[in-house]
C-alpha cells in the first residue's frame, strides 16, 4: 500500500475534484430548494390539477434511479435542441432529483404549522406569496433542518455519479489518478475518506445549527 505516494503526487487533483464535487452539490441543493418549495406548495394546494401534477413529478423523480435520470437529461437535452455542457446537465439532473425529495421534506414541515396562522395573516390582508416567504418558510426550515442535512449528504454522495457523463469531480478525478498510478485501492480509499470528511463536516454543521436553534427557541 502506498497512500502517501498517491496523495503527495496528486494532491492538487484531489483538491480540485473535491471542490468541483462541493460546488456542483451546493448549487444543486440551492436550486433544488427553490424548485422543491414550489413543488411542496403544489403538493398541499387546493388546486387539484396542480396537486396531481406535483405528485406525479415527485413520484417519477423519487421512483427512478438517479443514474437513469442523469442519462436521460444528458442524452435528451440535445434531442430537444439544447446543447449544454456536461456540468450543466449534471446540475439540472441533480436539481430536479433533489427537488422531489426536498418537496416531500417541506410538505411534512408545512403540515405541522397550524393553519390558523395562515388564516390570521390572510385576514390582515397579507398576500399569499408574502405569507409563505415571511411566515411559513422560516418556521418550517427550522423544523426540517435535520432532514435537509441528510438530503444534502445524499446529494453529495450521488454527485459521484456525474463522473459517468465526464464531469471531472472527485470520483472522475480518482479514476484519472488510477489510470496513471495503477493504484486503484489506495486512490479510491483516499476518495472515500474525502467524501467521509465532507459529510462529517455537514453533519457537524447541522448538529451545531440545531443546537443553536434549540437554544434560541427556549
Amino acid at each position: 500500500m502506498d497512500f502517501l505516494g498517491v496523495i503527495t503526487s496528486h494532491y492538487n487533483a484531489f483538491l480540485v475534484g473535491a471542490a468541483m464535487t462541493a460546488v456542483v452539490s451546493a448549487v444543486s441543493i440551492a436550486l433544488g430548494m427553490i424548485l422543491g418549495l414550489w413543488l411542496a406548495f403544489g403538493l398541499i394546494s387546493r388546486n387539484r390539477p396542480l396537486r396531481r401534477a406535483s405528485a406525479v413529478y415527485r413520484s417519477a423523480w423519487r421512483g427512478t434511479p438517479i443514474l437513469v435520470q442523469l442519462l436521460i437529461v444528458f442524452y435528451l437535452l440535445p434531442e430537444i435542441g439544447l446543447d449544454v455542457p456536461p456540468v450543466a446537465a449534471a446540475i439540472i439532473a441533480l436539481t430536479m432529483n433533489t427537488a422531489a425529495f426536498q418537496a416531500e421534506i417541506f410538505r411534512g414541515g408545512l403540515l405541522t404549522i397550524p393553519s390558523g396562522q395562515v388564516e390570521a395573516a390572510r385576514m390582515l390582508g397579507i398576500r399569499v406569496l408574502r405569507i409563505r416567504v415571511r411566515i411559513l418558510i422560516p418556521q418550517m426550515m427550522r423544523l426540517v433542518l435535520p432532514a435537509l442535512i441528510n438530503e444534502t449528504i445524499s446529494i453529495l454522495k450521488n454527485s459521484s455519479l456525474i463522473s459517468v457523463i465526464a464531469v471531472t469531480e472527485l470520483m472522475r478525478t480518482s479514476q484519472q489518478v488510477v489510470s496513471v498510478t495503477y493504484r486503484p485501492l489506495e486512490t479510491y480509499m483516499i476518495a472515500a475518506v474525502v467524501y467521509l470528511a465532507m459529510n462529517l463536516v455537514l453533519a457537524r454543521a447541522g448538529a451545531w445549527f440545531e443546537r443553536r436553534h434549540a437554544l434560541a427557541a427556549r
Binding site: 449528504i153 459521484s160 463522473s163 488510477v178 486503484p184 489506495e186 472515500a192
Partner: peptide, 23 residues
C-alpha cells in the same frame, strides 16, 4: 455504520471491484 452511510456506493463498488485484486 458511518463509513457505509458517508461514502458514495460507487466508491465502495470501485474499491471492491478495481481495488480488490491488489488486496
Amino acid at each position: 455504520i458511518e463509513i457505509m452511510r458517508g461514502t458514495p456506493i460507487l466508491i465502495l463498488l470501485f474499491i471492491l471491484y478495481y481495488g480488490g485484486p491488489s488486496a
